[in-house]
Amino acid sequence: MNATAEMNRWIRFTPAQRVARFAVYLGMVAAIVWALKTIEVIPEFLYDAPAQVVDMGARMWPIDFAHFWPGIWPALVETLHIAAMATILGLCMGIPVGFLAARNATPFPWVNHAARFVLVATRSISTLLWALFFVAMFGPGPLAGALAIAFHSIGFIGKMFSEGVEESNRGSIEALQAAGATRMQQIVMGYWPMVLPTFWSVALFRWDINVRESAILGLVGAGGIGVALNSAIDLLQWDRVSLILLTIFVVVILIEIIVMQIRRRVI
């Protein structure tokens, strides 16, 4: 009787799984509790927040639409150029690194590791930090902005690419090897056609992100619509701030629609 009861106990996880899960839960709870307990909150600011938000909203209205053509439009065009150039440049730099990081296309572990480190490092340094570097190198302006986003994009593009390459079909590569193709030929003839869909989806996705990113470059003087936003905030011209936010919103939505349409047709 006892034996059957024992046998019929339903255990969802093995003890090791349970310990691992418990450790993860514990770690999460500990991190959250620590963060909640020690994070600096200034209560006076918090009580004041609703009033501040209402005040800000009131200052943002009515939106200064007259400022659009002289003040915003050129900055917007610059932003779009920055995003497009950064995407192209980012693809040019990210794809080779992606191939180097893929274990099947580059069978040298130390090269893989080095390439992976480049991918993580470029991704970890945020666009703004890259922008600060490039502003120091090339002076303020859109060039620094485009380079900043391009370098920050390397990590994402390379990571997606190396994953795409690693998932590609071994058979057709073996066929090329059997035909005596060199490593470069294998990449161009074998891997590249197989990751072409990845290429398009990564390019589109990254372009979408880069437009958003390029809107903040102006904060450190690296060109684009962020310059206009920064100066409007510094000069407390809230009716222009709302105009710029609205512009960004519309552009981002438009780009999302374009990306969706292209995706539906091409991929």
């Binding site: 918090l46 990113e213 809107a215 903040i216 936003l229 936010l245 960004i248 939505i253």
Partner: peptide, 18 residues
């Protein structure tokens, strides 16, 4: 839509630095 840094600018105006 908005980059976190842009939201942060607005949030700083609302709840102060920090």
């Amino acid at each position: 839509t908005f980059h976190p840094v842009i939201v942060a600018i607005i949030a700083v105006k609302a709840v102060g630095f920090g």
